[in-house]
Amino acid sequence: MYRLLALSLLVSSAAFAGDDARALIQNTLVTPLKAKEAKQSRFSRARIPPQARRVRVLEEKTDSAGEKFVSFAIDSSYGFGGSADEDEWDKNTTTGCVYVGKQEVFVKFGATFRPAAVLLGKKTEAADARVCRPNTEVSAR
């Protein structure tokens, strides 16, 4: 009985972390990005912004400083074909991680991570090497 209770608490806390991460990504990145892109010129060599984005929260890990983060991926639907069909989605157009406790979102560019504000046009530096990297990955380097 106690085991079942502990398991359900574990599952529900993981679900809460996922929901919090999703809400944070939505509020600090996806929604402001959509507003910014609405003003963006379409007559440019930059890719025309997607019609829709969806956030997939992946897994919770711990970095070398012992801080928990949640990795995520954003899929995008381009063009005017609609986003009902799974084939219409480009997978992993943006990937990154969220530190829910610190309310920080990072996105991946090549081998580095930067604060998500970079996608909103803010000049930022690459984040510390430990950010968004699981403890095992950093120690393996």
Partner: peptide
């Protein structure tokens, strides 16, 4: 103050 989308 801004990074253009083309640069991103």
């Amino acid at each position: 103050e801004e990074l253009p989308p083309f640069m991103l």
